[in-house]
């Protein structure tokens, strides 16, 4: 049995959940599929999930803590007898899956790009050394794996399944006092197909508003460099790089970003890299597919206009 832990926003499955289902279907040789919806407002989501998976477990455990997610996923593992657990590889996913893997005494394959079954093993491709090395890892079942966002086509609905409620004893230890949400209506950075990132070269937080405008025209997520975040112009949650988020969109548009190694660690696997920088020697141009060597203050407004015209 393969168990997919499905991310959702309390209303619908997230794109990352559909990708995780897609990943599970690639491993179908290892057994039938089941899903589990964990969190709050899980009922409607579980109904949606049942259009994709023959069995869906649901654990209404309230807001996120790693302990609760690991506990609920473990309950679903025990109920289903799953030997493989698949989840999305965000910060939260990579936290609770480590707890779960320890509890299952399982091999943990983190942030995988591709996975395939090989007898009773799973072989996975992933990045290491700050995204600079590609490696193949192999682990014997049981295996817990996280799928890197945007690496698997989202699954289509298939058949219909039943929903089964799990009762989970809630672990204590972490009490959430306050949620500081930057959950804007915009596109999630790690799931976005286009990311528009601004660097320190923009000069001011006001100038950064233009980055947001371009992102909004393109339906893109907004990213920031560490320098911009350190300067307090943008929140940490938007930081791309070694200590921020790792993204792999179809297009990564870097505006006034010089492209330090630490920044590249978060975006160097993007399909197309686009850079605007006045310094033709900036390291970002060495990894760029397309670029404009010019002043971002002049180029960016022109890019917004050109993009608007295209979208009209």
């Amino acid at each position: 049995m393969i168990l997919v832990v499905l991310e959702h926003d309390g209303q619908r499955l997230r794109k990352s959940a559909l990708e995780a289902i897609g990943r599970a279907r690639q491993l179908e040789a290892l057994g039938p599929l089941a899903g589990v919806v964990i969190g709050e407002n899980t009922q409607a989501v579980a109904q949606e999930a049942s259009q994709y998976l023959p069995t869906v477990y649901v654990a209404e455990v309230g807001g996120y803590t790693a302990e609760k997610w690991a506990e609920a996923a473990y309950a679903a593992v025990q109920k289903s007898g799953a030997q493989v657990v698949i989840a999305s590889g965000g910060r939260q996913g990579r936290t609770w899956t480590a707890r779960l893997a320890y509890r299952m005494k399982a091999g943990l394959l983190e942030d995988t790009l591709e996975t395939r079954a090989e007898g009773n093993h799973i072989v996975a491709t992933r990045y290491s050394f700050l995204n600079r090395v590609t490696e193949r890892q192999r682990a014997a079942l049981p295996v817990v794996l996280t799928a890197k966002p945007n690496t698997t086509p989202p699954a289509e609905p298939q058949g219909s399944g039943g929903v089964e409620v799990l009762n989970v004893a809630l672990p204590t230890g972490v009490e959430v006092l306050e949620r500081l949400s930057e959950q804007k209506k915009g596109v999630s950075l790690t799931e976005a197909t286009i990311v528009v990132t601004g660097g320190r070269g923009l000069g001011s937080p006001e100038a950064f508003a233009k980055v947001e405008e371009l992102a909004s025209v393109l339906g893109a997520a907004v990213g920031a460099t560490r320098a911009v975040v350190d300067a307090g112009w943008r929140p940490y949650s938007e930081q791309v790089g070694q200590t921020g988020k790792t993204v792999q969109p179809n297009a990564y548009i870097a505006l006034a970003v010089s492209g330090a190694v630490q920044h590249q660690a978060g975006m160097n696997k993007s399909k197309y890299i686009v850079a605007v920088n006045k310094d033709a020697e900036a390291p970002i141009f060495k990894i760029a597919d397309y670029g404009i060597v010019g002043d971002v203050h002049q180029v960016l407004p022109a890019l917004i206009e050109a993009a608007k015209k295209l979208k009209d």
């Binding site: 006045k278 670029g291 404009i292 022109a302 890019l303």
Partner: peptide
Amino acid sequence: RLNKLIDGKDPVSAAHEL
């Protein structure tokens, strides 16, 4: 990488080309 770089001296036409 393709490394297609456009001169940004004329920002409007560079932006359109990009």
